[in-house]
Design a protein around this nucleic acid. Structure first.
Length: 146
DNA sequence: GCCAACGTTGGC
DNA sequence: GCCAACGTTGGC
């Protein structure tokens, strides 16, 4: 099956891309939404690429990349399912949701739709590539020019 | 912290 | 199977 692309949300108070970089990989436990579970159970495959999204952040947005390093397997608590994700890249900053919403080609991206609360979302190959391009334009938050 | 949007639960 | 009540998500 061809490689797929995903977006996975997490609040920074729970887990960040920095944490994933430190840990190398982590089990994505605790998803309690059937649609998101079905994506993990049925569609996520080893090697799929993931946009790591910080929700409830300042600003909320994509902060890095991950990849699926273990396909769906059951949690102790049925009927829930988890995957393992591995660290791929830590952006120098955030690609904010606001930028995603105003970027041509991302009009249909799930995360830019109003009321999109789903914590695991499919992303098209084109959308993924556009977000990568946006990430390259991030200026380091540490830089200050006069 | 507010609250709109959405998912889930449970009485009927 | 409807739908009101309730709980959660997540942008702002």
């Amino acid at each position: 099956m061809a490689k797929r692309y995903w977006l996975m949300k997490c609040e920074p108070s729970a887990y960040t891309i920095d944490d994933l970089q430190r840990d190398g990989s982590t089990a994505w436990e605790g998803v309690r939404n059937y649609q998101a579970r079905n994506f993990m159970r049925d569609d996520m495959q080893l090697g799929d690429e993931v946009l790591f999204y910080a929700s409830n952040a300042e600003p909320s947005g994509v902060t890095g990349l991950a990849k699926i390093v273990r396909a769906g397997y059951p949690e102790k608590l049925a009927p829930w399912v988890m995957v393992d994700i591995g660290f791929a890249k830590n952006f120098k900053g955030t690609v904010p949701l606001e930028t995603l919403k105003t970027t041509k080609g991302l009009e249909k991206m799930v995360v830019t739709q109003k009321g999109s609360r789903l914590s695991i979302q499919p992303v098209t190959k084109d959308e993924f590539a556009i977000v990568l391009t946006l990430a390259k334009t991030i200026r380091s938050s540490h830089s200050s020019h006069s």
